[in-house]
Write a protein that binds this DNA or RNA. Structure first.
Length: 387
RNA sequence: GGGGGAGUGUCCGAGUGGUUAAAGGAGACGGGCUGUAAACCCGUUGGCUCUGCCUACGCAGGUUCGAAUCCUGCCUCCCCCA
């Protein structure tokens, strides 16, 4: 039997999980994810992967989509309150989260619940929940202490978060709850809440937080250093190749459960990227993404498939002349001032040839069927159906 | 309820009447180097019909030849006391 605590940071209380696993009953293993951003990223998958290990051992996974708690805001690891997503955003995200989670979990052995089911409770019931703890206990967590010490705000709503998450455990009768190390307080808090509601307390298991593609900050959507599980294969491959070598060991260990293979780092990183792309896009996808990568980044050539841009609409002032800044601005979602700068800096190419620094317009014949490139990795095929 | 403080560009953060589209840093972007790495070096970083024009320092007014900087009101936030 595989070691379910592999890679885990905390498994508490000491020895409890082993006892539970020794029992004859499948465990109910809980994970809550708040749908605060559009996509699940690789950082989330570290815990999801661990969940799937429990699943493979025959345990039941209870995946909680925190559509209610997303409106409260998890203070874990936060140095400031952040604006909460709107109800619409949460709903949209919630709808796609479980699909994304099923890229890793076995649908058959997963119970998906939304916590608005039970957290939309009567005021009476809420008071009952609030009665289970003290302000001192809620404030003792490190992130609050830091904020209070620094004179930063702590929203009253955030204070309630652990109570609500703990109540989730009551609602689903969790035996074990997983989370990142930043969740330790919330997870432990859930134990007390369960006891208060007459349930045996869950044990908790925390997993390391995956570092982002920048190699030093935690992976997070808002920091832009993430790899989303729904990212296109080429995008995913490219982002994975951009991680610093030093981060590779962690990626291998936490995402693949493996050691970095011996050999050149470049090959090891390619291997990592291929395997992860395969995981989320199906076998063979990694190789395809790698071919694209070689073409664009190694050979500095044009990729096989490029989106097309209709240039007819950008023919400006003088007949037949296309305003390049406008064209670039529209094609690459940038302002035309920005586009001018890019041209000036030699960052714009046509069929691989840099556009002269002072060239701002070209006849349309000089553009049709050519490839417009900005920087190293953004391409558009120019077409003109109108002519 | 009383007192004090703060709101500046993507973020952090200087700037207290005049070459201030606003120091500095981070991030991002472009170029170089490279294993598309990372680190490092150089450059750019409000918008536009771009040798000029427009918009910008919480919001709305006002004073002034001239305001992010002064005044008034409003909004938001933080701290301390009660």
């Amino acid at each position: 039997m595989p070691d379910l605590t592999r890679n885990a940071v905390d498994v508490l209380p000491e020895g409890r999980l082993a006892e539970q696993l020794a029992g004859d009953r499948p465990l109910r293993v809980k994970l809550g994810i708040d749908p605060t951003t559009a996509d699940i990223h690789l950082g989330h998958t570290v815990v999801l992967e661990k969940l799937s290990e429990f699943q493979r051992e025959g345990h039941t996974v209870v995946l909680i989509i925190g559509d209610f708690t997303a409106r409260v805001g998890d203070p874990s690891g936060r140095s400031s309150s952040r604006p909460l997503p709107s109800a619409e955003e949460i709903e949209a995200n919630a709808a796609t989260y479980q699909e994304q989670a099923f890229k890793l979990l076995d649908r058959e052995r997963t119970e998906v619940r939304r916590n608005s089911e039970w957290l939309r409770m009567e005021p009476e019931a809420l008071l009952g929940l609030l009665a289970q703890t003290t302000v001192a206990r809620l404030l003792e967590r490190d992130d609050f202490q830091k904020r209070l010490g620094a004179g930063r705000p702590v929203a009253a709503l955030e204070l309630l978060y652990p109570l609500l998450q703990g109540y989730d455990s009551v609602a689903v009768e969790a035996d074990v709850e997983l989370g990142g190390t930043d969740q330790k307080f919330n997870l432990l808090f859930g134990r007390d809440i369960q006891v208060a509601y007459g349930q045996p307390p869950q044990s908790i298991l925390t997993m390391p937080i995956l570092v982002g593609t920048d190699g030093f900050q935690k992976m997070s959507k808002s920091l832009g250093n993430y790899v989303g599980v729904t990212d296109a294969p080429e995008e995913m491959f490219g982002r994975l190749m951009s991680i610093p070598d030093e981060a590779m060991a962690e990626y291998y260990r936490l995402l693949l459960g493996a050691e970095v293979p011996a050999g050149p780092p470049n090959e090891a990183k390619r291997e990592l990227a291929r395997r992860l792309v395969d995981r989320f896009h199906g076998a063979g996808a990694g190789e395809g993404a790698e071919r694209h990568f070689n073409r664009v980044f190694v050979q500095h050539a044009v990729p096989d498939e490029i989106e097309e841009l209709e240039i007819g609409a950008y023919v400006g002032g003088e007949p037949g002349l296309v305003q390049l800044p406008k064209l670039i601005g529209a094609g690459f979602q940038t302002s035309s001032s920005e586009a001018r700068r890019l041209i000036k800096q030699g960052g714009v190419k046509l069929d691989g040839e840099p556009v002269a620094a002072d060239l701002l317009e070209l006849p349309r014949e000089a553009l049709v069927d050519r490839v417009l490139q900005v920087g190293k990795r953004r391409f558009l095929k120019l077409v003109d159906r109108a002519s």
